[in-house]
């Protein structure tokens, strides 16, 4: 039996009241529910406050470069298709620096889960606008208000028919933990965009701001793409939470030369096989 304690207790670098704390708790709860042992998972992150999350979890960790968590996770999953690979990083890391990789990961549809801590601001670099910051939001870096429009990750993922698209909220831990379980279990690429307050640098999108707007989806059929598209654009007075879209595009790994799910580590072609290839150059 796997328990919460198996994933350890660590001192964090986060502010008291930061949404990251409850996201971390939800992640642990989800892992326990799936009965995944620490050594069976690989958590991959980039750089940012959210990207530190895997360090506060007793598991395998690849904490790579800013924006590059998804490519690293892609290589890891292709190298070891049997591992449970979960990417955890922020809105700046995944949608800004790593935007191209986000699109490519949806297209590839590798069986991995992306958890984006989306606080609509850059925390680690102290409060600049992120790709999801509202237009007009004043920050020290955008003193005349953010001149650029926000990126809607959920709408983009639904439009591209990512296999699993959901939105959660750090203030609803049980709901979030359930979304993470569904995301990991669904084959192919899964996105859970997680709304979270930044208590220090985002004075607009506060805990109360989210609390007042977020509502749980009822009677939505995630198989209905048009309806999911419609929902994904709902943002403002009301913000829907839950599974927006479930697709069934074939999973990338099915087309690999090693479809058995064996790690490449175990694949050592014989000298005879290599010899045959060499001879074909004669």
């Amino acid at each position: 039996m796997v328990s919460i304690d198996d994933f350890g207790k660590f001192e964090t670098a986060w502010c008291p009241g930061c949404g990251n704390h409850s996201i971390l708790k939800s992640v642990k709860k989800a892992l326990v529910e799936m009965e995944l042992s620490p050594h069976e998972c690989i958590f991959v992150s980039g750089i940012g406050q959210a990207a530190k999350a895997p360090h506060y979890l007793k598991t395998n960790v690849f904490n790579g470069l800013h924006g590059r968590a998804l490519p690293a996770a892609t290589g890891i999953k292709l190298g070891n298709p049997g591992a449970t690979v979960i990417v955890q990083s922020g809105d700046g890391c995944n949608y800004g620096e790593g935007g191209n990789h986000f699109l490519a990961a949806i297209r590839r549809n590798i069986n991995l889960t992306l958890l984006v801590h989306d606080n609509q601001i850059y925390g680690l670099t102290k409060g600049q606008a992120s790709p999801t910051t509202f237009m007009g939001h004043k920050t020290k870096a955008q003193p005349r208000g953010n001149p650029s429009g926000p990126f809607n990750p959920v709408a983009v993922a639904v439009a591209m028919q990512a296999n699993f698209v959901a939105r959660g909220f750090a203030g609803m831990m049980d709901h979030l933990s359930d979304l993470i379980v569904q995301a990991v279990r669904h084959p192919g690429f899964s996105l859970v965009d997680i709304l979270q307050p930044c208590v220090t640098f985002n004075k607009v999108n506060t805990f109360t701001w989210y609390k007042e707007r977020c509502y749980e989806l009822k009677d939505h059929d995630p198989g209905n793409w048009s309806q999911a598209m419609e929902l994904s654009r709902e943002w403002g007075e009301k913000i829907p939470l839950g599974v927006m879209f479930r697709g069934n595009r074939p999973v990338f790994e099915e087309k690999l030369p090693h479809p058995t799910g064996e790690p490449l580590y175990y694949n050592i072609p014989s000298k005879e096989k290599i010899k045959k290839v060499v001879q074909s150059y004669a």
Binding site: I42, G64, T74, G79, P257, L264, V277
Partner: peptide
């Protein structure tokens, strides 16, 4: 034939990060 995974990445930045990820995973 040889069980080699070759992936055309979205850019060279992705390519090197994928290769490092795969190497971490034992390939």
């Amino acid at each position: 034939e040889l069980g080699i995974v070759v992936e055309q990445a979205e850019d060279e930045i992705a390519a090197i990060n994928m290769a490092i990820g795969a190497s971490y995973a034992g390939a």
